[in-house]
Simulated scan of single mutants.
Amino acid sequence: MYNDKQKAIELLNEAMQITMGKRVILHQQEIEVLNSIGIIHFKTKNYEEAITIFNDALEFIENIPLVIQEGTIIVKIIQGLAQTLTELHYYQESLN
């Protein structure tokens, strides 16, 4: 958001909190927001945090119905994770 990484992440986290309420399991929209946060960390070269976010998103996907898992969000998350691992020269992990 206007080149302010922290403000962008704060707004995305706030959006997640608004939609989640007291739920523990994330829905597809929250996972997409989580993916966006991972992308911001990737673009700002905070690779370790990006990996954590992408892995968290993949874990949350395991808890949602299969119908939702068939969407493109899982592909986006895996792509973001693979790109991040490649930047860190973890080539085998990226290929996996």
Results as ranks from 00 to 15, higher is better:
N3G: 06
N3W: 03
D4R: 12
K5Y: 02
Q6L: 06
Q6W: 00
A8K: 02
I9K: 03
I9Y: 01
E10H: 10
E10N: 13
E10I: 11
L11W: 04
L11S: 11
L12M: 07
E14C: 06
A15E: 05
A15T: 08
M16C: 09
I18N: 01
T19N: 11
T19K: 12
M20F: 00
M20T: 04
R23Q: 03
V24D: 10
V24M: 06
I25W: 00
I25R: 05
I25V: 11
L26K: 10
L26G: 03
Q28N: 08
E30Q: 15
I31R: 02
I31S: 03
E32T: 04
V33Q: 04
L34G: 01
S36T: 10
S36G: 09
I37G: 02
G38C: 11
I39G: 00
I39C: 03
I40F: 02
H41I: 05
T44H: 15
K45S: 08
K45F: 08
Y47D: 03
E49I: 09
A50P: 07
T52M: 11
T52Y: 14
I53Y: 09
F54H: 07
F54D: 01
N55G: 06
N55M: 13
D56C: 12
D56M: 12
D56E: 13
A57F: 05
A57S: 08
L58Q: 06
E59M: 15
E59A: 14
I61S: 12
I61R: 06
N63W: 08
N63A: 09
N63K: 15
N63V: 02
N63D: 10
I64S: 01
I64G: 00
I64P: 00
I64V: 03
I64E: 00
P65W: 00
L66G: 09
L66H: 07
I68E: 12
Q69A: 04
Q69T: 04
E70H: 12
E70R: 14
T72F: 10
T72Y: 11
T72E: 14
T72I: 13
I74S: 10
I74M: 06
K76H: 14
I77A: 07
I78V: 12
Q79E: 13
G80F: 02
G80L: 04
G80D: 08
L81D: 11
L81N: 08
A82F: 02
A82E: 04
Q83D: 15
Q83S: 15
T84I: 05
T84A: 08
T86W: 15
T86F: 15
E87L: 15
L88D: 01
L88K: 11
H89P: 01
Y90I: 10
Q92N: 12
Q92V: 13
E93I: 01
E93F: 02
E93K: 14
S94C: 09
L95R: 08
N96H: 10
N96M: 10
N96T: 13
